[in-house]
């Protein structure tokens, strides 16, 4: 479902003496449907960078990243937009929303973008928010004022609203208490059961051991660290 071949990336900082930083070099791996692969490595090894490259958020200089039939590296913006709407979900570490939009609408938004009728999208959003223990009195408020953990859970609810065939999870269990961590892990297990291919970053080792089938140490592909 997700396949990386000889992928490399450099950052060129034009305004800082044109410094060229090689961050990822020659990564190849693939993730099958129903499989969860963990990216590991010390902070700064390039886990999030690699994940952002798979999402098309960072540009990839060399190699190919195929998700389903689409090569992200060569794709037109509109193809990536369609892919993100239908196929590829991403739960980032931070929630980014239009200010003043109610939490319920934030969570229902990915479904609305797919053309799901408002009532159905809302029902799914309510279900997820309830599962993730966001009190109902907060649903009509904007999540921008929520605590870190609450925002993280809203972000997860949003990321799981649509049953994406491929998912990227950046620290989904960080800053969660035991109960909510358990809910998130079972959501991930549920996604695997329905056949989603998942790439995840987990600093929580127990969580990683439970949901991930394989680990890929990113520091092996980081030139500056390997040298």
């Amino acid at each position: 479902m997700i396949e990386l071949k000889n992928v490399s990336k450099t950052f060129t900082l034009h305004n800082q003496g044109s410094a060229v930083i090689e961050v990822i070099s020659d990564v190849s791996f693939h993730v099958a449907p129903g499989e969860c692969v963990a990216l590991t490595g010390a902070s700064g090894a390039g886990k999030s960078t690699l994940m952002r490259m798979v999402y098309g958020n960072y540009l990839t200089q060399f190699g190919s990243i195929r998700i389903g039939d689409l090569d992200i590296v060569q794709a037109e913006p509109r193809e990536i937009i369609a892919l993100r709407r239908e196929v590829l979900g991403y739960v980032s570490q931070f929630l980014r929303v239009v200010p003043r939009v109610p939490t319920l609408d934030v969570v229902a938004d990915p479904l609305r973008a797919l053309g799901v009728p408002a009532e159905n999208a809302q029902a799914r959003a309510e279900d997820l928010l309830a599962q993730l223990n966001i009190p109902q009195r907060l649903w009509s408020l904007s999540p921008t004022t929520f605590s870190g953990g609450e925002q993280q859970r809203v972000n997860i609810a949003r990321g799981f609203a649509h049953a994406y065939p491929a998912m990227l999870l950046d620290e989904p269990t960080a800053s969660l208490d035991a109960t909510n961590r358990e809910v998130v892990l079972s959501l991930i297990e549920g996604a695997k059961t329905r056949g989603a291919a998942i790439i995840g970053i987990f600093h929580d080792e127990a969580a990683r051991a439970r949901v991930c089938d394989r680990e890929i140490d990113v520091s092996a592909f980081t030139p500056e660290l390997a040298a």
Binding site: L13, G56, Y58, L59, P77, I81
Partner: peptide, 21 residues
């Protein structure tokens, strides 16, 4: 030119980098 989040998060041209930073 490109995807909005890509241009903003990983700008390639010197001027875009300056603009974003």
């Amino acid at each position: 030119a490109g995807l909005t989040d890509q241009v903003l998060d990983d700008p390639q041209h010197a001027y875009s980098q300056l603009l974003v930073s």
